[in-house]
Design a protein around this nucleic acid. Structure first.
Length: 261
DNA sequence: TGTCAAAATCACATCTAGGT
DNA sequence: ACCTAGATGTGATTTTGACA
C-alpha cells in the first residue's frame, strides 16, 4: 500500500508530457531519479497494468505493474543502482543476471528489465550499449547467428525444437504474397534456461549488434530501431519494405534449411 | 455499392501448471 | 530437470453484416 502511494506521489508531482519520449526518460536517468526512471520506463514500454497473472482473474493487484511497484521504492532503486554499476564495468552479463536473481523485481521479465539497461546505456553513454531483448530482437539475434554461421551457439542459446517450429508453425502471411510463418505465442523464443545461458545469450546479442553497428559506422540503437521495423499489427505495414517482414522471411528460409523442414 | 456499427481478431510479456 | 502451452485484459485494427 505504501509502495503504491510512492508511485501516486510521483505521478502527482510530475508534469507528465503528452508524449512520453526517450529524451524525457533519459533525463530521469541522468538526474539519478531511479524510481521515477523505472516507473516511466515501464509506462513507455506499455507494461500491462490491467491484466492479472494466470489464476488471478479480476485481481488488479496481480498485474505486472502493480506487482513491480509493490516491490517498493527502495528495492527498485537498489536494483537500478546495482545494474548501473555493472554496466559501468562493461559487465553486460552481470547487469542482466541481477534482475533474474538478487534484484529480481516481480512482474518484470527480460523484455522489460532490458529496457532499463537500454536507457542506462544511453544516459551514461556507455562503451558497449545494452539493447532491449524481447521477442523481436531475439529473432534478430537468431538471424545474426545463422548468418554468421554460429550454429553451435544458436542451438546452445535457443531451443532446437522451438527454432525448428519457427519455419513451420501456424499463422502465415500468405495474403502478402509471402510465405512467412511464425508462431503467434510470444513464448516461441523463450531462451533455454538449461545451464543458465540466458545472460550469455543476451551479452552475445548486444556484442554482435555493437560490432555490426560499429562496422557500419552507425549508432547501435539506430541499427536496432531499423531492424526492429514497423509492427505487423496494421495490415498496411505488412509489406516487403518492413524490416520485420524481411527478417521473418530470412529466418524462415534459413531455419528451414538448417532444420530440414 | 456505400456507410456505419457491431463483432471478431490481434499484439503484447509474464508466470506457472503440467508434460516429457 | 528441462521445456512448453496457455491464461490473462485492453485498445487498435480489421472484418462482417445490416440496410438503404
Amino acid at each position: 500500500m505504501k509502495e503504491i502511494r510512492d508511485f501516486r506521489k510521483i505521478i502527482e508531482n510530475h508534469n507528465i508530457p503528452e508524449i512520453l519520449d526517450r529524451e524525457y526518460i533519459i533525463n530521469l536517468y541522468k538526474e539519478s531519479k531511479y524510481y521515477e526512471a523505472f516507473a516511466f520506463t515501464m509506462m513507455w514500454g506499455k507494461i500491462n497494468a490491467e491484466r492479472p497473472q494466470k489464476g488471478y482473474k479480476g485481481d488488479k493487484t496481480r498485474t505486472p505493474f502493480y506487482c513491480a511497484l509493490n516491490h517498493g521504492k527502495i528495492n527498485i532503486e537498489n536494483a537500478l543502482i546495482a545494474s548501473k554499476k555493472e554496466l559501468e564495468n562493461s559487465n553486460i552479463k552481470g547487469a542482466y543476471q541481477l534482475f533474474n536473481s538478487d534484484y529480481k523485481i516481480p512482474g518484470i521479465g527480460s523484455s522489460y528489465f532490458t529496457k532499463i539497461l537500454f536507457f542506462q546505456g544511453l544516459a551514461n553513454n556507455m562503451e558497449v550499449m545494452p539493447l532491449i531483448y524481447d521477442k523481436w530482437t531475439k529473432l534478430i539475434h537468431v538471424e545474426l547467428l545463422v548468418e554468421e554461421n554460429e550454429i553451435d551457439k544458436l542451438t546452445q542459446f535457443y531451443s532446437k525444437n522451438q527454432l525448428s517450429k519457427l519455419s513451420t508453425e501456424s499463422a502465415n502471411y500468405t495474403e502478402m504474397g509471402l510465405s512467412i510463418k511464425i508462431k503467434r505465442n510470444s513464448s516461441n523464443l523463450d531462451i533455454s534456461i538449461k545451464d543458465n545461458f540466458e545472460e550469455e545469450a543476451y551479452a552475445d546479442y548486444v556484442n554482435r549488434m555493437n560490432v555490426l553497428a560499429s562496422n557500419y559506422g552507425i549508432k547501435v540503437n539506430s541499427l536496432e530501431e531499423y531492424l526492429f521495423g514497423k509492427e505487423l499489427r496494421s495490415k498496411k505495414n505488412r509489406n516487403k519494405s518492413n524490416p520485420r517482414v524481411v527478417l521473418l522471411e530470412a529466418i524462415n528460409k534459413n531455419l528451414a534449411r538448417l532444420f530440414d523442414n
